[in-house]
Amino acid sequence: MGEEELRAVIDWLVRLVEMAGAAVIVTGAAWAMVRFVVTGIRYRDAAVFTPVRLTLGRFLALGLEFQLAGDILRTAIAPTFTQIGQLAAIAAIRTALNYFLGREIAEEQRLVRERGPRDERTSS
């Protein structure tokens, strides 16, 4: 397999991985929107939205990981210094987003544990 064929395969893989990341994010956003509407109609307590936020955060973090994987694949074959610099910037931004998202998820989970189990029927 020559370099051009390898580039074509890598380009196809990058698109596949990026589509997977986009699909994860879209799926998470759609799920969160449905849960937000259903929960908002059934309950008036803002605390019931925390599990929705946590799940959406997990979907976003996973989607970001797929997007980063696509960026890494893109530079797999004979990257230029410009591509390496762009990858470093993108990786830094996405890693920072993922880090802060992870911290927020952990904090929300801690708050949920401290509140204890809730009976959602009494939250309205």
Rank of each mutant, 00 (worst) to 15 (best):
G116E: 00
M33I: 15
A29T: 15
E120H: 02
F59P: 02
A47I: 15
A106N: 10
V52P: 08
A89I: 11
D11I: 00
A30D: 03
A69E: 02
E18Y: 04
A30F: 07
V34F: 10
E5F: 04
S124C: 11
R103D: 04
F66A: 02
D71L: 10
E3W: 04
I72P: 00
E114P: 00
A22W: 02
G21D: 02
V14M: 05
V52R: 08
A69G: 13
F49G: 07
V37Q: 00
T95E: 05
V24N: 01
W12H: 15
E65Q: 13
D71N: 13
Y43L: 07
G63Q: 03
L111D: 15
F81Q: 14
A106K: 10
Y99F: 13
A106P: 08
I72C: 02
M1E: 04
F66D: 01
N98E: 14
G57W: 00
A23P: 01
T50E: 12
G102L: 14
A46R: 13
R103P: 00
I10T: 11
A76R: 11
M1C: 04
G70A: 00
V9C: 03
G63D: 03
V112D: 00
F36S: 12
A106M: 05
W31E: 09
L13E: 05
F100G: 01
V9T: 10
F49T: 12
A46I: 15
R103Q: 12
A61S: 12
Q67F: 10
L16K: 10
V112R: 03
G21W: 01
A20S: 09
V112L: 05
F100R: 08
F59L: 03
R35G: 05
S124F: 12
I41T: 11
E65N: 14
R44A: 09
I84D: 09
M19P: 06
A106H: 08
T80I: 01
E114V: 05
L73R: 02
A69V: 06
T27D: 09
L111M: 14
R110Q: 10
A88H: 11
R94M: 02
S124Y: 11
M33E: 10
G21E: 01
R115G: 03
E114F: 04
G2T: 07
G63E: 02
Y43E: 05
P51Y: 05
Y43F: 14
R74N: 11
S123C: 14
L6D: 07
M19T: 15
L16P: 06
L64E: 08
T39I: 11
R110V: 07
R74S: 09
T50Y: 06
V14E: 05
G63K: 02
L64C: 05
E3P: 09
V9P: 03
R15D: 14
R42Y: 05
A8N: 08
A29R: 06
F49I: 09
L54A: 15
G102Y: 09
Y99I: 13
V52I: 13
R74G: 04
E114S: 02
R53A: 15
E5N: 09
A47P: 10
G40K: 06
V14W: 01
V9Y: 08
L97Y: 09
E3I: 12
P79V: 01
T55N: 13
A47F: 12
F36E: 07
Q67V: 06
L87H: 04
V52E: 06
Q109R: 12
Q83L: 04
R113E: 10
I105L: 07
G40Q: 06
A46L: 13
F81T: 12
Q83G: 09
Q86K: 12
F100L: 09
A61L: 10
A88D: 07
F36Y: 15
F36T: 13
A20R: 04
